[in-house]
């Protein structure tokens, strides 16, 4: 379970990115976070990944209060959260196999399991035959699939996807969203930050809408709300 309780985030510059935000996301839910630029979506993602600490309020993931987590324990929390970025953020000097295997190496998975699980994960995202390719040899959609395989290979309980279709064409966008839905059906909590109106409206999932750092709408089976 993921809980944000009266979370406020003020940057040292004086900008308030999030103001008294409270959201509870149950285990196994699929949630879209939508909003225009400057609404606080990126800050929310950074808070969930503990890249930032809120100036007020509490964040709890799977019962762990983020404010009580020591710096040295942050990696342990992140290992239970798969993350996918808009610009993929793959390790450019490593091939597809190594990019996915890397996520397993950091949790010290025995090499024999890595050799078994990585090809299986790549097959699931449809890249079983491209394990030797380097990121620059792949299309945007393929790179996002690699990022998804990397995010899922350690079986995280939560998957955060920050604009996962932002750099993709409609077909690839739908492929990725179908994969995310598939992952969600297997029990993983999925949180997707997106601008993609068509996908949000078509998927009929829970939609949380942010505007200038506050929640203006939180609907089950909702749609994309125009803020204006």
């Amino acid at each position: 379970m993921l809980v944000l309780d009266h979370v406020t985030m003020k940057y040292p510059t004086g900008t308030t990115a999030l103001n008294d935000v409270s959201i509870t996301i149950e285990k196994g839910e699929f949630v879209f976070i939508v909003g225009s630029s400057g609404s606080g979506k990126t800050t929310l993602m950074k808070l969930l990944l503990k890249e930032l600490d809120p100036t007020a309020g509490t964040i709890m993931i799977n019962g762990k209060d983020y404010s009580k987590v020591k710096r040295k324990d942050i990696p342990k929390i992140r290992r239970d959260i798969g993350v996918v970025f808009q610009n993929f953020r793959l390790l450019k000097d490593r091939n597809v196999y190594e990019n996915v295997a890397f996520a397993q190496r950091i949790v010290e998975t025995p090499p024999r399991y890595i050799r078994r699980q990585v090809p299986s994960m790549l097959t699931m995202v449809g890249l079983g035959d491209k394990y030797k390719s380097f990121p620059k040899e792949l299309s945007g959609g393929e790179q996002q699939r690699v990022a998804l395989a990397r995010a899922l290979v350690n079986n995280p309980s939560i998957l955060l996807a920050d604009e996962p279709t932002g750099n993709l064409d409609p077909k690839n966008s739908w492929d990725i969203m179908n994969l995310l839905e598939e992952v969600n059906k297997r029990g993983t909590t999925v949180v997707v930050v997106t601008h993609n109106r068509e996908i949000v409206n078509a998927m009929k999932k829970r939609v949380v809408t942010l505007k200038k750092g506050t929640i203006i709408s939180d609907e089950k089976k909702g749609g994309y709300i125009d803020e204006d």
Binding site: L49, E51, K72, P75, K76, I77, R78, R79, V83, R89, L90, L91, K92, D93, F102, A103, I106, V107, R150, A151, N154
Partner: peptide, 16 residues
């Protein structure tokens, strides 16, 4: 530094 940041965000320890 981008490479370091990616490693950290997917859960790598400082030592790793």
């Amino acid at each position: 530094k981008e490479e370091i940041s990616i490693m950290k965000l997917i859960g790598a320890t400082d030592f790793f």
